[in-house]
């Protein structure tokens, strides 16, 4: 079979943002029992695209459909595309059965990004909950790649239980470094677990940062982001220095299908990343 052949030219794909580019799965890594990471490389001779931390792609699985998944790789490494997926719906269920060599369609990258450029010269606190670590991993890569531009860097990560920890080897590696503080907590654990138990906000008082010169990047379930933001505010962090990321249904990724609306925002183009002050009302209204 000739993988290099495609009936569409690069120009055609660029002219139509609804057409996917094809990528081959080069490696599948299971992070937890229900979460896996695909390493993808472009075929059809296409260039790898650049992305910014926090952006997402629409991933197409033949015969099933498309799903929005954030990019979880290193933004300074454009040789491969990384996507960490949790098995939850029809597309992700099919996606988990794909093997190395299989082909996916990719549209993107879409959305805005975690503004790492606005954190230059400041302390950075990255707070992730559950699968929310995946969209934040590019931030950690970026901060560590450009370590001298930032002051203290802290990663606080909370998840359900020790077996649900994403990127555990990497977290250990980062934890061993002296230029980033990494704390992990779980909601519950058996007594073998040596780490913290409790919700992620419990880690905030232990983190060292200057509230007047800090940028916080928070990603996780809405309720976790709300409580985290409220705790950061207790430490006198300004609302517009707390960034959170929202999740909604996406069908197009480019602002036309309407599904990702949150009040005045289209999450796909105005988000997914917002400062807390732009979102706080929305987070406190039900079913908005």
């Amino acid at each position: 079979m000739d993988l290099e052949h495609n009936t569409l030219t690069k120009e055609q794909i660029e002219a139509n943002p609804m057409l996917p580019r094809r990528f081959r799965i080069d490696k599948v890594t299971w992070e937890t029992q229900e979460t896996f990471t695909h390493e993808l490389v472009p075929i059809d001779g296409a260039d790898m695209f650049r992305f910014k931390p926090g952006q997402f792609n629409m991933i197409y699985v033949f015969g099933v459909g498309e799903i929005a998944i954030s990019i979880s790789g290193d933004p300074d490494d454009d040789s491969r595309l990384y996507h960490t997926t949790r098995v939850v719906g029809s597309v992700t269920r099919r996606k988990q059965n794909l093997v190395e060599g299989d082909i996916l369609g990719i549209r993107g990258p879409f959305g805005n990004h975690w503004p790492v450029e606005k954190a230059v010269g400041k302390d950075v606190v990255v707070i992730a909950g559950g699968i929310g670590l995946a969209p934040l991993r590019p931030v950690i890569y970026y901060l560590l790649n450009h370590r001298d531009q930032y002051k203290r860097i802290t990663l606080l990560y909370g998840t359900r239980s020790p077996d649900k920890i994403l990127y555990s080897r990497q977290l250990k590696e980062w934890g061993a470094r002296f230029d980033i503080d990494v704390s992990v907590t779980v909601d519950s654990a058996d007594t073998d677990w040596q780490g913290h138990v409790g919700i992620v906000t419990k880690l905030i008082p232990k983190a060292v940062f200057d509230p007047n010169n800090t940028v916080a990047f928070v990603c996780g379930p809405e309720i976790m982001m709300r409580f985290t933001a409220m705790d950061l505010l207790k430490f006198d962090m300004p609302e517009d220095k707390i960034y959170v990321s929202m999740e909604r249904n996406h069908k197009c990724g480019i602002g036309f299908c309407g599904h990702c609306q949150l009040g005045s925002y289209f999450i796909c183009k105005d988000g997914p990343v917002f400062t807390y002050d732009k979102l706080k009302s929305y987070l406190s209204i039900k079913e908005v």
Binding site: M1, T7, L8, L19, R24, F62, G101, D102, I103, G105
Partner: peptide, 10 residues
């Protein structure tokens, strides 16, 4: 459908 995936038709 192709062996490993798919090919877009114009």
């Amino acid at each position: 459908k192709t062996e490993n995936g798919f090919e877009v038709e114009e």
